[in-house]
Amino acid sequence: MSAIYILWLRELKRYTRSRAQIVASLGNPLLYLLVLGFGLGPVFKRAGNGDYLQFVAPGVIGMTVLFSSIFSGLGILWDRQFGFLKETLVAPVSRLQIMIGRTLGGATVALLQGLLVTIVCLIAGFRPVHLALIPIAFGFMALIAILFAGLGMAIGSGLQDMQGFQLIMNFLVMPIYFLSGALFPLKNLPRALDYITKLDPLSYGIDGMRNVLLGRAYATFEPSLDLTVLVGVGAVLLVLGAWRFSKIEI
């Protein structure tokens, strides 16, 4: 357990030590929130779908958690390049403990960034049904963070250098975000697109936050379905990440 705590604390310290990283992590969320939230607001309202700022805020929060958590797993590449991974793997602790510590650390950092963006959303005009519901939405954020930290760990364990990083961005991370319904409603979509969005686990995380913060009017699925999918897929990806990490060769 001490190894898990040390690795969790290392990831947390690495994030909180850099103020520039904290500020930079707010760049994309602010761009999406302010430019899209206010720019597309009139169009969204004329279409009869309500306030677009209200709709897009959970999507922006979900985006922040997604990018931060999955990149924490891909951080294995940096550790491999600078030799820290080798030092960690030869330590007298199990690889499972190392994987759990890194995953929890990455998920915690993602949650902190998600919390910062939530505060920014509230300042920008996002108004949940009740502020007391934010801790429940925080639970959905935690599930998203753990799920995609496990996915990042599985992917990062199989990459040998940074050349594959751009491929992961273009062909996995960005499609996961844009097909999640973060920026558009998942109702009345073309059949093919409807099937694809339902296969995206992030769709259920963002929809779960909308269910909690805004009510059923802004959501697509039942809250129980959102929770079930996130827990089930998260468990599978954590097992996959642990297995892939156990196969890393020094």
Rank of each mutant, 00 (worst) to 15 (best):
Glu249Ser: 14
Met153Ile: 12
Tyr204Trp: 10
Lys247Leu: 10
Gly208Ser: 05
Ile6Ala: 15
Gly114Gln: 12
Phe171Arg: 07
Val231Met: 10
Leu179Asn: 03
Ile6Pro: 01
Leu143Gly: 06
Gly75Leu: 01
Arg17Asp: 07
Phe138Val: 13
Leu122Asn: 02
Leu227Phe: 14
Gln97Tyr: 12
Leu172His: 08
Pro201Glu: 07
Arg210Lys: 00
Leu183His: 02
Leu30Met: 15
Asn28Ser: 14
Thr228Arg: 04
Arg210His: 03
Pro42Gln: 02
Ser157Pro: 14
Met141Arg: 03
Glu249Pro: 05
Phe171Ala: 08
Tyr204Lys: 11
Ile206Val: 14
Val239Asp: 04
Tyr15Thr: 11
Val231Phe: 02
Leu111Ser: 07
Ile61Thr: 03
Asn28Gln: 13
Phe71Pro: 05
Gly83Ile: 11
Gly39Leu: 04
Asn49Ser: 10
Phe148Gly: 09
Ala145Ser: 14
Phe82Asn: 12
Pro135Ala: 11
Phe84Cys: 06
Val129Asp: 10
Pro135Lys: 10
Lys247Gly: 00
Glu222Gly: 15
Val173Gln: 05
Ile61Leu: 05
Ala242Asn: 02
Ala57Lys: 00
Gly232Cys: 13
Ser68Val: 11
Gly62Asp: 09
Leu53Arg: 08
Gly50Tyr: 09
Gly234Ile: 03
Ser203Phe: 06
Leu172Ala: 13
Thr64Ser: 15
Met169Trp: 01
Ala145Arg: 05
Phe148Leu: 10
Phe221Gly: 14
Gly205Ile: 01
Pro29Trp: 06
Val239Arg: 02
Arg80Gln: 03
Tyr204Pro: 14
Ile196Glu: 07
Val93Ser: 11
Ala142Leu: 13
Val173Pro: 01
Phe55Pro: 05
Ala57His: 00
Gly37Met: 06
Phe38His: 04
Val65Pro: 14
Phe82Thr: 10
Phe55His: 10
Asn28Trp: 12
Leu238Phe: 08
Tyr52Trp: 01
Phe126Lys: 04
Ala142Gly: 12
Gly41Tyr: 00
Ala242Glu: 05
Leu74Ala: 08
Asp200Tyr: 01
Gly73Asp: 00
Ala142Val: 06
Gly73Phe: 04
Leu237Lys: 13
Ile70Val: 15
Ile123Pro: 03
Arg10Leu: 05
Leu225Gln: 11
Ser18Met: 10
Asp161Gly: 03
Gly232Met: 13
Leu66Gly: 04
Ser25Ile: 02
Leu111Asp: 05
Phe184Pro: 01
Glu249Tyr: 09
Val212Leu: 09
Tyr15Lys: 08
Val23Thr: 08
Ala124Pro: 04
Ser180Lys: 08
Asp79Arg: 04
Gly125Glu: 06
Leu189Gln: 12
Pro135Cys: 09
Gln163Tyr: 02
Asp161Gln: 04
